[in-house]
Amino acid sequence: MNPLLIILLILLMVSGLGLIVFILLHSGKGTGVSDMIASAVYSSQSGTSIVEKNLDRITIGLAVVFMLCLVALMLVYPQGVINR
Rank of each mutant, 00 (worst) to 15 (best):
L17N: 10
T59V: 10
S15E: 03
G32L: 09
S46A: 01
S15P: 00
G47W: 02
I20R: 12
Y42S: 14
N54K: 14
C69W: 04
G30S: 06
K29D: 13
V33Q: 05
V81D: 04
L75M: 03
N54Q: 14
L24K: 01
V64C: 02
G28W: 07
G61F: 02
M1G: 02
E52W: 06
V51P: 01
M1K: 09
Y77S: 11
I50D: 14
M1H: 04
A63L: 13
S46N: 03
I58G: 01
Y77Q: 04
L24R: 01
L17D: 02
M13Y: 14
L55E: 03
G16T: 00
S49P: 09
Y77A: 11
G32V: 10
V21F: 14
T31I: 11
F66K: 08
K29P: 09
L9E: 05
L4M: 12
V65Q: 04
L5D: 13
T59R: 06
G32Q: 10
V81W: 05
G30R: 09
S27G: 12
G80I: 06
M67V: 15
P78S: 02
I10Q: 12
Q79K: 08
S43K: 13
I60H: 02
L19M: 15
L73D: 06
R84Q: 05
I7V: 15
V65I: 15
S49C: 07
G18N: 10
V21W: 05
I23C: 10
T31F: 09
V14S: 01
L24H: 05
I6P: 00
S44W: 09
L62H: 06
S34P: 01
A38C: 11
I23G: 11
I58Q: 07
V71Q: 05
